[in-house]
Amino acid sequence: MSAMNPSFSHRAKPLTLNDSAWVRHTLVVISLLTIGLFLILPLATVLIAAFAKGWSTYAASLSEPDALAAMRLTLLTAAITVPLTTVFGVSASWAIARFEFRGKNLLITLIDLPFSVSPVIAGLIYVLIFGAQGWIGPWLSDHDIKIIFAVPGIVLATLFVTFPFVARELIPLMQEIGHEEEEAALSLGASGWQTFFKITVPNIKWGLLYGVLLCNARAMGEFGAVSVVSGHIRGLTNTLPLHVEVSYNEYDFVGAFASASLLAGLAVVTLVVKTFLEWKQKQDLKAARQAAE
């Protein structure tokens, strides 16, 4: 039935030929100019500037201790924040997509809130709590615990800015998939965890990976929020994006762009994988809809 079902065949191409040639060409030229000037040129510039003084300078500036420390800190931050945000995202979407309860819409709005808050505010709120003049700042300094201008502050600020990333992908996906397969598994005697790992996870895996991917890109690339809480201590509290800033402000352009090229590489990989995951997920949903026919 599925293979023959015509409703999933692609619709005929929309009326491209109705627009006169000059309209089409003008619009395409505007699009390509915009994409070129705002997207392609910057990407190319990173590489050109990074290699402006050749391979060896590039390699040298990446292997300098401060750069290496920044990379380590960036990886560490991502290694802590991405799993936490993922666990949160999965449990939030389980609660929201599988159950009815009062205040659900408010909860969804609150989960989205960190998206619309300026990253600088995300840093500021932690300074107000943990900073020297903050709520528990004096107590922390009495006990010799450092959060602000230290790694925990960076992790907290990153947790805030990546907060919605996984939940946002999973909630609509799980709502679309529905819960019939999970009920079927339960009726066949599976436990809650068995149902989750054998049925739910395989069904949401592409969306989950998608959310994790974007979360990781943001965790490694976050600048504003981290900048507020880091204190810019070279070799200690500089993440890679902060290292880019410090190098740039010290007129070490090759150093700045060398680090930037790593982050740009991360962005490109993210985009490629993202495109792949979007394609995979579309296939899965299509199959799901056919299976439900």
């Binding site: 690339g221 902060l242 800033e245 740009a264 962005a267 985009l271 993202k274």
Partner: peptide, 27 residues
């Protein structure tokens, strides 16, 4: 409209989402 390289341009649109803002800034 069909035009060459459309898929790549389409994927590139999200670059500002994926590129760390500090990199975008200096570039």
């Amino acid at each position: 409209y069909p035009f060459p390289g459309k898929k790549i341009f389409d994927a590139l649109i999200d670059l500002p989402f994926a590129l760390p803002t500090a990199v975008a800034g200096i570039v």
